[in-house]
Amino acid sequence: MYLFILKRILQSIPVLLGVSLLTFIMVRSAPGGPFDQDRNVPPEVIKHLNEHYHLNDPLWKQYLDYLWSLLHGDFGPSFKFQSHTVNDLIAAGFPPTMELAFYATLFALIFGLIAGITASLKPNSLQDYVPMSTAMIGICMPSFVLGPLLLLIFGIWLQWLPVAGWGQIDGDKILPSVTLGAAYAAYIARISRGGMLEILSQDYIRTARAKGLSTARIVFVHALRGGITPVISFLGPAIAGLLAGSFVVETIFQIPGLGRFYVQAAFNRDYTMIMGCTIFFAFLIVIFNLLADVLLVLLNPKLRQEVSGGR
């Protein structure tokens, strides 16, 4: 088991190196230097700035220097807000984004699993069609349509919930979390329904029924463990989607998170910030994929045997 985890960690190192190299090359091949759009800057100042940021060194040396400082956890200064480092901005933006992603996942898991399990207990009945049709709407309505609509209905017309902000007014975390989590709740509902249907048709479930166990016991003790494994393998990659979704949701609800900073950095052409965020996001995604894989192995005895059998 430890060997498996170690192997997976070692496998993610080339991925992270690849991401950093690709990002570095892309950012550096951009037309124009980072200081070009500041008007009325004398050439001497630009020269000085270029020297200060080592932009005249050969590219491979710049990359290695950048990598070296990354290894020390230093993402460098922000080109746009020169009094801040990228580290400051990431440190400020990360907690709201992570909190948003957490609440969204929680919402998605609770509603998705309830809907999926309910539907799987009576397939092709009303109990199946209603949650599954709702799930289809959740999948088809993108967050940037759902978010503003929820905002309009609950924030502006009914005035039940605040329209913007994060952690300032009571209840201002509800709408963003629901907006971000809705599509994932829908996917989880569909996946868990499929997984549960497969498990519920197995012989050992029939045995459990024959023993006279209650439906609740069969579902929660016997079926759920196998039925939700597809959901867990979906969760790892879903985190990547959640982070991308946070760009939109944070923009709509004006949450000072990493996604909004990233979009702003994209508009400002703040290259170090873009580079730092990209690598940071990649790092997060790699970690969550790793966690999902480990969890999957822990939950599935067959896989567990395979993993330790390879030792």
Binding site: L22, A244, Y262, T278, I285
Partner: peptide, 12 residues
């Protein structure tokens, strides 16, 4: 698969 592609498209 492990790359954050939406982010790369934004970058592009």
């Amino acid at each position: 698969y492990a790359l954050p592609f939406t982010i790369f498209i934004i970058l592009l």
